[in-house]
Amino acid sequence: MLELKNVTKIFNPNTVNEKLALDRLSLTLEDGDFVTVIGGNGAGKSTMLNAIAGTYPIDGGKIFINGREISKLPEHKRAKFIGRVFQDPMTGTAADMWIEENMSLAMNRGKRRGLGWAITDADRQLYKELLQRLDLGLEDRLSTKVGLLSGGQRQAITLLMASMNNPELLLLDEHTAALDPKTAAKVLSITREIIEESKLTTLMITHNMQDAINNGNRLIMMNAGTIILDVRGEEKKKLTVEKLLETFHKISGSSFANDRALLS
């Protein structure tokens, strides 16, 4: 369970560029919730994910994962509970290291990294099986540098890595936005499989409103650092892109043409 209580984040405080990025944001995710997040640029979607992951400290409020307060922990300690996939396929993996080395780094997330060999034959077998499920032919390329792979392949591997050891929370920050439509669809379907299989509690930001409607059991829309719409279950299934745009227009009050540019 993830709980955000009155989380506030202000960028560049006390300057002319001061921006209230998160405005007393509260959100509770039940175990197994798969929540899609939409909203215009600057709505605070990525800021929310980064605040949870600990990329930067928050200026107010508290964040809990399964009852433990994590808002004071440094980023690398929160990683024990959190798997992440970023928008840029280059960010989630170490380009100069092999596929198996990258996977071993993820395998040891949240564990003490001692002086035992990073990769054993048993590990290799496990990585092969995991990669096989991606159906991208990567299982025979364990000692290929990740930097030589395509963006889609790298995102798929990052997904596998993020979901290793069943994290208590999976954070996906527009992880298909940088991919071509076909690859994006493939990565999204892998995402769905992994989340469903391990019943991972997930927050997924997307720019694609149809994806936001089609995936997950709950949808939230953000604007100006707060949640302006929270739809779940049956109600979510009835959503359409047009309805979402209408709602956005009604609640945020900004012009429709702009909304489409910002949201779709």
Partner: peptide, 24 residues
């Protein structure tokens, strides 16, 4: 080649990724 050593290499290779994988 050890777990610790691999984490040091990851730190130099991609710091953001390293922190996301729980590396100090």
């Amino acid at each position: 080649g050890t777990k610790f050593g691999a984490a040091v290499r990851a730190t130099g290779c991609n710091e953001k990724m390293a922190r996301a994988q729980g590396i100090n």
